[in-house]
Design a protein around this nucleic acid. Structure first.
Lengths: 138, 138
DNA sequence: TTCATCTGTAATAATAATTGTTACAGTACA
DNA sequence: TGTACTGTAACAATTATTATTACAGATGAA
């Protein structure tokens, strides 16, 4: 992963969590992330298709969480956002070499195990718990 | 990670492991990975600086493993190769928003934990064990 | 010594991924 | 009917990654 999608998505969801059901506009969210509103809308659109967010068009529109933050696991978010293997791409090696012929298969196994380990780590964390970190200790 | 460095490095080390001390040239290695020899030399140079490989210039030169493959952990390799945070970059958010001001710190914590979990998974795997996968079952 | 073979490294080009920008149709509310 | 939004496309700009070429220097062998 060499993009900021996970950070962006988590930022959006955190804002929505803390907003407690109040609709936020993409412009406002973009201001907090310091990103172009169109990019934010793209990510929102993605998160909406994945069921994390529900949004409303038109005047007074904006978006809210579609599910309680206590039920949203960061592992779900990771899996939804992921576009690239955790440990990077593979090459297209030479099949006439024994290593070349088999390495992608063995790398896949390795990557799968690695992802599983990461996922089970992220399963322990909810969006709600993440959002709590931003509240004053009082 | 959206590059093939981990795959490339592991490919190189696997070839060297299976070569059992025989020197391999960058040209030969490049042929197996199906990559430009200069790129392979760059990666070899990196692995040499990190102590995984020792190489010899000149006629009959090439490289070998600098340490027994049973002692090389895949977690070391990951840490050596890693150039980008596991879950991707962060944004440069707006500090006048409470979430914007704190999110990178909390993301860092999250990323650190995630990496730790991945690392402890990869610690269980040696280069030797990985290399075994390429040997015929007999 | 001279040649062929190889590493090490730099410089540069080409390609691909990522992010940023602008624009505008369509929706919803007042 | 106007204003404030979303949703989406088309495109530009930037950055990351991979590929290519070139060549100095090391090493061993003829």
């Amino acid at each position: 992963m060499n993009n900021a999608k996970f950070a962006t998505a988590l930022h959006i969801l955190t804002l929505l969590d803390l907003a407690q059901g109040e609709r936020l506009s993409s412009e406002w969210i973009a201001g907090s992330i310091n990103l172009n509103p169109a990019l934010v809308r793209k990510e929102i659109s993605n998160l909406r298709k994945l069921g994390f967010i529900s949004s409303k068009e038109g005047n007074g529109g904006g978006c809210t969480l579609a599910r309680p933050s206590a039920e949203i696991l960061l592992s779900e978010l990771y899996q939804a956002i992921r576009v690239v293997p955790l440990l990077g791409r593979s090459n297209t090696p030479n099949p006439s070499c024994i290593v070349g012929r088999l390495i992608n298969q063995h790398l896949d196994e390795l990557y799968t195990e690695a992802e599983l380990s990461l996922t089970s780590q992220l399963e322990k964390k909810t969006l709600k718990a993440f959002g709590e970190k931003f509240k004053p200790v009082s």
